[in-house]
Amino acid sequence: MHELSIAENIVEIIHQHVDEDRLRDVRAVGVKVGTYSGVVADSLEFSYQAITAATPLEQSFLALEQISFVVECEECNQKLINDDGVTQCSSCGSFKTKIISGRELQVKDIELEDVKKELV
């Protein structure tokens, strides 16, 4: 259960990219979460909501993009989605595979509500 500290890291990254007076305009925060990033999506969203409540980021939310665990076989060149975490090639049985994706934990982008123009 380390999602709280992960959420704190995300908030810190947002603060580094968004000026303080625009934090209130942050909406969706895109985060890539690999199947084996060690993060439980629900609990990360919950933690994020908990620590941003009553802060300028309270209207923001996480938009999590789940990334499958994919291995590429060096023998038969197939790319396989092995969400069970097995790296052995399920097509030819080879152990000569490399992990292509599924361990990401990355802030992808930050969506900001446009500043409303004052009516003259």
Partner: peptide
């Protein structure tokens, strides 16, 4: 809406 592209590892501080 405008979008800032970030692409930073969440645990980069660690």
């Amino acid at each position: 809406m405008s979008v800032l592209t970030i692409e930073r590892k969440v645990l980069e501080k660690n």
